[in-house]
């Protein structure tokens, strides 16, 4: 474990808590893409199947449970409890166009071909594009509430910090995972225009307006 991965995991946890708290407090999921949340739940489910078979550390097991529980709780809030506030009209990204290519790619490019490894690889590829429905929704509505942009900033920062973690681990342990690194770079690049808007607008107290 290193400081980059620890702060990355914390940024990830903070993002999830910001979102859950926002939906719970405002009793509304307006402006939130349920599809992205479904993709995140799929990412954690396919990645943490080894939760009961392999033990790394109490931290690792604890965080896996938290990510799984909070992602399903968020989906419950969006699609069940506050479904009246779910914005169907703007959450229209075709997620099958993200799931199927990720699965195909995972079957073609993986470290070795077995059930858990292919699913892990699928979860890595899917995570890199899982935010697209949310970013698409923000561009369609043309704006995002500031709390949603804080959520996106924290979520985008988590994988950017993981890139620093991978550089650090390569420098200190000579360990690297090219699949995770390439997907992580793609994932972070997808946030770049949002990061720019967040830093130039939201941090100055302006609303996040995306060019529609």
């Amino acid at each position: 474990m290193n400081i980059f991965r620890l702060t990355g995991d914390l940024a990830h946890l903070i993002a999830i808590i910001i979102l859950l708290h926002k939906i719970w407090k405002s009793r509304s999921c307006a402006g939130i893409s349920g599809k992205s949340q479904v993709l995140f739940a799929l990412v954690y489910t396919t990645r943490y199947l080894d939760l009961v078979t392999s033990y790394v550390s109490i931290y690792n097991t604890f965080m896996k449970f938290v990510f799984l529980a909070t992602s399903y709780a968020t989906i419950y809030l969006i699609y069940v409890k506050f479904k009246a506030t779910y914005d169907h009209n703007h959450d229209t990204f075709r997620i099958e166009f993200l799931i199927l290519p990720s699965l195909a790619l995972a079957l073609l490019i993986n470290h070795y071909f077995n059930f858990l490894e292919v699913l892990w690889t699928f979860s890595i590829y899917l995570e890199s594009v899982a935010i697209l429905p949310q970013l698409f929704m923000v561009s369609k509505t043309g704006e995002a509430e500031s709390i949603t942009s804080h959520y996106l900033f924290a979520l985008g920062s988590y994988r950017a910090l993981y890139i620093l973690n991978w550089i650090y681990r390569y420098a200190t342990e000579g360990h690297y995972d090219l699949i995770a690194i390439v997907a992580g770079v793609v994932q972070t690049v997808l946030y770049c225009d949002f990061f720019y808007l967040y830093i130039t607008k939201v941090l100055k107290g302006k609303k996040l307006q995306l060019p529609a």
């Binding site: 991965r5 995991d9 070795y112």
Partner: peptide, 10 residues
């Protein structure tokens, strides 16, 4: 293929 290095990252 790479041996099964344990996945210790989230």
């Amino acid at each position: 293929s790479k041996r099964n290095k344990q996945k210790d990252e989230l």
